[in-house]
Write a protein that binds this DNA or RNA. Structure first.
Lengths: 345, 345
DNA sequence: GTGAAAGCGCTAACAC
DNA sequence: GTGTTAGCGCTTTCAC
């Protein structure tokens, strides 16, 4: 065997394609980006060389040179709550039609994580930012403002936005549900939800809810909060607990469909007359509800629509077709199902 | 008012921090990255200047200069199937302890999308790739091999891996479940699942399942497939359909817990003696099952563990503590619940 | 239609 | 401990 020196494997560059095809780097670049006029002949030679070598362009270098990055940062609190993947679906649907690409960051509802995630995202100089919620600490708001990229805050329009904002009014959602419940003649109303210190959307919904009750001289008859674990199971357990403690409750408002579903299953097993003796409602408009023994009342939070609108704003800002901040309030409609309506409509 | 020329707002750079603090760019860079020795005094001056300006380093430039990118590409088929967010949870948990960061790409189970997502991801030169499944077309495999970064294929170990692989054996999972079902004396076994042309994991599970039945001279008594819609509802509908068509079925094996849960609810409502007259089992070990009226038998696919191990491999490869490809088979254990066991163990 | 030169904002390597 | 120089791999700009 001859003593061969193996040259260290260097990552492949445009130059390699240039050399392999005998075409200048500049023209190779043009071919690969479909920019400018290139003769069909050289075009073919370049593409062949690139394919044979398995060349993948280096976007880092491209982004630095062109100061253009086709990424849109999407910052959400969680992936385990199906709500956020659904918003993401709407975002992707719209961005797929553009040259933009979503990149997801998850904060776990923690302000310190949010700060870090925003910082990390901004350090990649994205073309836009879509971020869940309108409540951010001062440091986050300052970064978002200073970034000089379009920002869309989503899923909550109650408050002051950094730039654009798309979503339902959580306060109004709470109010609307309270009104519907009262209109049906329910009087002793219990609330079941997540521990809310960090979930501002749930908190605002609750505030809107109690506010409306207060206007008609009522307050929540009893309440239960949970955190962690199987939401379906927690729904059961909390429902058992609240009904045992306060038996004269005639309505249960759940802050999400999953615990609502658990509660519904529990109540049906216990033989409650629903909604005659006891009414129920959840929140979100989850697909899951379709398969339950009875359709739980809920409120569609317009997740996919929110995602789509937010993405449209970013896309519009990027291509210049939108220049000013937008505020889009998505309508949240009650889906009555079979657990809320006592009277014929 | 004086005729002032507003200089065009230039994105902020290290140089700005350097000028504001009176420290060289290089030293500013050192401070911001915590590298090398810097006197406490200059350190403080730099950090102050950076904070005041609201400077966010440009990772694109940094990555280009250092040819180091702290991103790990995570490529999965879907976010709406909770399975994948759970794997992602395991990945994040481990990467959070490192300087690495996951970036998610979604393929929607489509090979053409997979190809595009891999290409896009590779063009950012990530430090590693974690990708769902072991079945990829030749073009994808070639890109992954050529990329010269650690690749971990996850959630399926039956086949030839590009590099490392972590997950359960889907075939074995199907076999194990079939054995357990037969051991309990069930004989007429129905299968309900997703349309599988693109879900290789479900397909392999099904193959392992039928293979074991065949060994004891049986075959699937009837089967139903669905796609799209509320899985819970589809589970109901398919269960109704299969039991109407083939009434002597005494066991239903569902390819995921959600349709299994729908089937379970349906069967309980219809008054089936479970598991006396009819046994049921799902797949995944979803948290949701805890809240059902009866605990559905299932098989834990070790999603979080899979994510963690995959992330550990990438981290190890990156810091040099792992040098060779690994193959880690996660054990998939049956959770009997109350819908599979006819006899005392 | 094609190419050469300059530089995007940072860091590696080395000098002091 | 700190500064200087030379790129990283592309794209922009301008020349031909």
């Amino acid at each position: 065997m001859t003593d061969q020196t193996i040259p260290p494997r260097r990552p492949m560059t445009l130059r390699d394609v240039s050399e392999a095809s005998g075409v200048s780097e500049m023209t190779v670049s043009r071919v690969l980006r479909n920019r400018g006029d290139v003769s069909e002949a050289t075009r073919k030679r370049v593409l062949e060389a690139a394919r044979d070598l398995g060349y993948v362009p280096n976007k880092i270098a491209g982004a630095l040179a062109s100061s253009r990055v086709n990424l849109v940062a999407v910052i959400i609190p969680s992936l385990s709550n199906m709500v956020f993947p659904e918003v993401l679906g709407g975002i992707t649907e719209v961005l797929d039609e553009t040259h933009l690409q979503p990149v997801v960051g998850v904060t776990n509802y923690r302000p310190d994580r949010e700060e870090k995630v925003i910082y990390e995202m901004l350090s990649w100089r994205p073309s836009g930012i879509i971020i869940a919620g309108i409540e951010h600490n001062e440091s986050c708001r300052r970064m978002l403002r200073a970034a000089d990229v379009p920002v869309v805050e989503i899923m909550d329009v109650d408050g002051e936005a950094v730039d654009s904002v798309v979503g339902i009014s959580q306060r109004r959602a709470g109010r609307t549900m309270a009104e519907a419940i009262l209109r049906q003649g329910f009087e002793q109303i219990g609330f079941l939800g997540t521990q809310m210190p960090l979930d501002h959307r749930a908190r605002k919904r609750f505030e809107g809810f109690t506010e409306t009750l207060a206007r008609s001289g009522r307050e929540v008859a009893d309440q239960e909060f949970y955190s962690g674990g199987s939401a379906l199971k927690k729904g059961r357990e909390m429902t058992h607990a609240i009904l045992s403690r306060t038996p004269d409750i005639d309505f249960l408002y759940y802050s999400n469909d999953m615990i609502g579903a658990g509660g519904l299953l529990y109540c049906l097993e216990e033989g409650y007359d629903i909604p005659g003796r006891l009414g129920l409602a959840g929140f979100n408009g989850t697909e899951l509800l379709d398969g339950l023994p009875r359709k739980l009342a809920t409120m569609d939070a317009g997740r996919a629509a929110t995602g789509r609108e937010a993405a449209r704003i970013i896309a519009g800002r990027t291509d210049g077709s939108i220049t000013d901040p937008r505020r889009i309030e998505i309508e949240a409609n009650i889906e009555f199902g079979n657990t809320l309506r006592r009277y014929k409509p």
